[in-house]
């Protein structure tokens, strides 16, 4: 069952970039590429040769793999309600968060290894944003642990909906926060616009300017996997636990697609934040998650 879930999330992950690009194409009146185009791109990249900058070192060649391995393993922790992920233990979400942190650490070094000022900018912004967004995730998980009395993904997500009649509302609020965290972590709008092609204003895209061929393909897969991971977490918060199994899996798939559509909508109709405003925006997320924490305390009769 867990294997099936892992495959489902992997499929969702690979679908999301396609869904986003279709949405954006339709909204801007273009025909757009097919749903599978991002996957074709990745497959093509994986077969290609690479060009390495002479400034780079051995680290540049292996850093994307560490990031990829971290994302692959992190996805294995995501459950669906009471269906555990491939791996689960108490406190697994701490491991999960730090694993993604490890991937990010190496990706930043990957960018800095090129000795390019542009990539330095991107890496620096990425480091700052992921540092600022980290507390929000931990506050949300702490609130969920408080509400459910458990401390692993699967226990929390299988229990929290039964804790009170308001739980599903809390789930949606939590999903909002996690969705925003996902936007920051994946460097999408409103923090970063992947469409901009001015190096000075990019975050994630500029970090991987010098990666090519296989490594770049790996980075593309990792990006989709991260979408899959967060879509999976959103599904956990929103899918009612009492639905029959098949429906729940379908619902999870639907949520992934909707997540992609939402990202597409957002990117079509919203402008990117001013770069200097981003820290404030991200800190607001921590503030909202603190509100989430206090709401949980009220519902759980701690206040």
């Amino acid at each position: 069952m867990s294997i099936l879930l892992y495959l489902l999330y992997t499929c969702c992950a690979l679908l999301i970039p396609g869904v986003i690009s279709i949405t954006k194409a339709k909204l801007s009146g273009r025909k757009g590429p097919g749903l599978w185009q991002p996957i074709y791109d990745i497959l093509r990249l994986l077969r290609k040769g690479s060009v390495y900058s002479t400034t780079t070192s051995y680290l540049f060649q292996y850093a994307p793999l560490v990031n990829f391995a971290a994302a692959l393993l992190a996805l294995a922790f995501v459950p669906l309600g009471d269906i555990p992920g491939l791996m689960h233990f108490q406190g697994d979400f701490v491991f999960f968060a730090y694993l993604l942190g490890l991937g990010k650490f190496l990706l930043i070094l990957n960018a800095m290894d090129t000795g390019s000022g542009f990539e330095g900018m991107g890496a620096n912004r990425e480091a700052l944003y992921s540092m600022l967004v980290e507390p929000a995730f931990f506050i949300v998980m702490g609130s969920m642990a408080l509400l459910s009395g458990h401390n692993s993904f699967v226990d929390i997500f299988s229990q929290f909906q039964d804790t009170s009649q308001y739980a599903i509302l809390l789930g949606f609020l939590g999903a909002y926060i996690l969705g925003q965290i996902a936007m920051v972590e994946n460097s999408r709008l409103p923090v970063d616009d992947p469409r901009t092609h001015l190096e000075l204003t990019m975050v994630h895209e500029v970090m991987v300017l010098d990666n090519s061929g296989f490594d770049f393909g790996i980075i593309m897969i990792t990006n989709s996997l991260k979408f899959g991971i967060y879509a999976g977490l959103l599904a956990n918060l929103m899918v009612p636990i009492w639905l029959p199994l098949g429906f729940r899996l379908g619902f999870a798939l639907l949520i992934s697609v909707l997540f992609g559509v939402m990202v597409g909508l957002l990117e079509s109709f919203r402008a990117r934040n001013k770069m200097a405003r981003n820290p404030q925006f991200i800190l607001t997320l921590s503030a909202v998650s603190l509100l989430f924490f206090f709401t949980v305390m009220i519902i759980a009769n701690r206040i």
Binding site: I108, L109, M112, D113, A123, A127, E134, P135, F138
Partner: peptide, 26 residues
């Protein structure tokens, strides 16, 4: 929890900085 998370994030910021500047690039 928050202080540990914050310390962790800041430490990543700090060590990506020092490692990159000392060992990476030109």
């Amino acid at each position: 929890i928050l202080s540990l998370a914050l310390i962790g994030g800041l430490a990543i910021f700090c060590f990506t900085k020092v490692f990159s500047i000392v060992f990476l690039g030109s």
